[in-house]
Write a protein that binds this DNA or RNA. Structure first.
Lengths: 315, 315
DNA sequence: TAAAAATACTCCATAGGTATTTTAT
DNA sequence: ATAAAATACCTATGGAGTATTTTTA
């Protein structure tokens, strides 16, 4: 049984005439006759009664023709689905973002993408880098925004921006009024770090290797603390537990007068992290990804350098 | 797009592996790859993301695969319908019967067919011969029981029984006690005939050509009357309008003691009509028709001679 | 290196064409 | 005699095969 044969029997049932039905199907009359005979043989049923005068549909034929019409309608729906699927900016895009980027980038990104690709809603997955890598591989998300270094199997990775780190201290801290702080000054301070699993924790430890979970001071007092999110850490610093380092995008543009916190730039060389967009090489909507990339470039973030002319691939 | 291709994509979506999917479809892996590539090209959409590691279904692919499954289910229903349609004794049979046979034959016939082919309900059409011929031609009925002569275009006609005619007179008529009446005796009587269109009217007029709508007696009194059905005629005779001729099957087996009518056989040669079963030569359920024919033979009708060994075709 | 899909090619089944015959009115 | 479907026969597309290559983890 073929879809063509079904189209033929529907045409014959409609026209009640092999010749005219053949015309409607843009085939010759013998082609139609043979095809219908073939289908009748296969089904073991006579669908049409042929008369020199006219063609009539048998009772079984009528039922089968109706069913054939249903089949053809359903196949037409496939073509419709395909047509919709052709527009790469149509249909949801599943975007993964690491915890230390999501709350600060997404408000900008979502707004821009909503303007530029309104028919492409974002399904957002906030998670750790390693989890995003797995989800990319499994096809649970389509692309991800995360920090380098990153290597996903079968993934293309393109850097999108560099983000400077900023020192955060309590308002009454000695550094609060300083123009800058050097990285190695941090080792004398009590520090608040993100918990394990966050790549940003590792970045900060690179800047300040002396901090670690069980670091203590000369008197044996604990001097490194952990928070589960950047916002938690910020609150801990505000309450005087210690100092910390945050990515620039998480720093408010205007620090309120009554803020308990002060944000101090690093002295050169300013530590920073490189943020990238990653997606499966095989993901069939590269234009959707490119649209996201361009939207990231359009985000207005302080302390961030967009990498518009980035080289092809980077890892 | 072919049904085969749809089967392929459903298999790949299920197995998430071209090789295994190919096995399930009993084809080689390249065959499957090529077919799916072809469908993707035709639809202009990527259905699957291929990885060395694994195959994942795209968002559009998922929708299309679901729709493909629906198509395949509907095609399976076609096969089911065909299977049902294969049994010639399954599904209704549309049977036409002329007015002067239906009320007397059908009670027997329906009972027998209900026993012999319970899955073949009869759709009964009671009408004039000429109307039944048209309906046969149009495929509005499948076969018909009627009186010869009959010629339908594209029809096979087989005689099934001969039915004697019987004279019917009022109880107090001079012939009421006679053993027989000769046909030419009728011309002296007032007669009640069926209305125009009934073939039985013509049969009776062959027996008694002197009767006609405007026949009058010596004094110019009307002597031919018409009724619209055999039962109406019977009542008119009972009320004393005249005599009539009925087919034997319409004569009650037991005449009630208080009947106002008497039934008198014809003297030889007994006039009779030949009843036949007719159907379109192209009707695809000859066994259904044969079943009806055999069922007619099994009917117990008085004054009727079944033609079991009838010759092939007769007109 | 190994596993999987893609490619190259070959073959044959069959869908479709044209010309003709059969059939029924 | 005519109109319509069936049949005969031919062609070419493309579906399916095997062997091989490419790809990527």
């Amino acid at each position: 049984m073929t879809l063509t044969e079904l189209r033929y029997i529907v045409a014959v049932a409609r026209e009640r005439h092999f010749g005219r039905a053949a015309e409607k199907c843009f085939v010759s009359q013998p082609t139609l006759s043979v095809a219908i005979r073939k289908l009748e043989d296969e089904l073991g049923v006579t669908l049409f009664e042929r008369n020199a005068a006219e063609v009539t549909v048998t009772a079984t034929g009528k039922r089968i023709v109706e069913q054939a019409q249903r089949v053809l309608e359903e196949t037409a729906a496939i073509k419709e689905l395909a047509k919709l699927g052709k527009d790469p900016l149509h249909g949801p895009l599943r975007l993964g973002v690491i915890y230390t980027i999501a709350p600060y980038l997404l408000p900008h990104l979502v707004k821009i993408l909503h303007q530029r690709a309104s028919r492409m809603p974002l399904i957002i997955e906030e998670n750790f880098t390693h989890r995003l890598r797995d989800m990319l591989k499994q096809g649970e998300i389509d692309c991800a925004i995360l920090a380098l270094p990153f290597a996903g199997p079968g993934c293309t990775v393109r850097p999108v921006y560099d983000e400077r780190f900023v020192v955060v201290v309590p308002r009454d801290h000695a550094w609060a009024k300083r123009k800058s702080v050097a990285a190695d000054e941090l080792k004398r301070e009590s520090m608040v770090l993100l918990g394990a699993g966050h790549c940003f924790r590792d970045h900060v430890l690179e800047v300040c290797p002396e901090a670690s979970r069980f670091a203590t001071d000369a008197e044996g007092m604990q001097r490194t603390f952990e928070g589960s999110s950047l916002e938690t850490i910020r609150q801990m610093v505000a309450s005087g537990v210690g100092v910390t380092v945050l990515p620039a995008s998480s720093v408010p543009e205007q620090v309120p007068r009554d803020s308990l916190l002060a944000y101090v730039p690093f002295a050169r060389p300013v530590p920073e992290r490189r943020i990238a967009l990653a997606w499966r090489r095989t993901f069939p909507r590269p234009q959707a990804v490119e649209t996201v990339r361009q939207a990231v470039f359009a985000c207005k973030l302080h302390g961030v350098t967009m990498l518009r002319e980035a080289p092809a691939n980077a890892a």
